[in-house]
Simulated assay, not measured.
Amino acid sequence: MREKLLLVGAGGFGRVALEHAQQAFDCALVDDGYVPGTVINGAEVVGKVGDIARLFGEYQKLVVVIGNNKLREKVYQEAAAIGYDFPNIIVSSAYISPHATIGSGCIILNNAVVQGGAKVGNGVILNTGVEVHLDSVVEDYVLIYTNSVVRTHAHVGRRAHIGSTLTIGNNVTVPEDGVVENGCSLSV
């Protein structure tokens, strides 16, 4: 029998993460925008976000798949206080160096790469094609969109929002809650 996993969020990220999580877990969803009992991509919506405490007996594992970094952090903090465990959802086409450090509750999608010495915090979403290079740091609850690159010794601060198809150059720091728009590049 497979372990049960509660995914918080049934929007775009939720549906993408669900497809991959279903390969390893028996998944259910919570989302404030859907009526409980609704089935999305084969998984039932079993409640609202406020129901995670009530659902803890049936589910011990939870991953938050909400793109809003501050809200994702808040839900993770509430779930941690309840006692949930936070597995990572790492797609088989992603490459994680054995010399990298990955936190918990992360979602790492197709063809993403995390190189040796890199540190990825908790609750991070690395979308398709993201590269996190040698010895860089991506702090907790960061969201990095498709095909973006975090170069060597770069530092992406907590809850930063990094758009698609951009490069954070070597030794560049993106501040906590920083936003880098699609297609921009930051260099020293």
Rank of each mutant, 00 (worst) to 15 (best):
S187D: 09
H153T: 08
Y76Q: 14
A53T: 11
D31K: 08
I66A: 14
G169H: 01
A17Q: 03
V8T: 06
V64R: 01
V174Q: 02
A94T: 11
N69P: 00
S136H: 03
D32E: 11
K74E: 14
A53H: 10
L143I: 13
C184P: 00
Q23L: 09
V35T: 15
L6F: 09
G157F: 06
G178M: 10
V149I: 14
V39L: 12
Y95R: 15
G117M: 09
V124S: 10
P98W: 07
I125A: 12
N127I: 00
V180D: 08
N110G: 04
T173N: 05
N69D: 05
L5G: 02
G9M: 12
A94E: 13
N122F: 05
R159Y: 01
D26C: 07
K4C: 08
E78P: 00
G11T: 02
G121R: 14
R15N: 03
S104G: 08
L7D: 08
A43L: 01
D51Q: 13
A94R: 06
N88G: 11
V156K: 06
H153K: 14
L186W: 05
V132L: 07
L7K: 00
G123E: 10
K70M: 12
S93T: 15
T152H: 07
D51A: 15
E139Y: 05
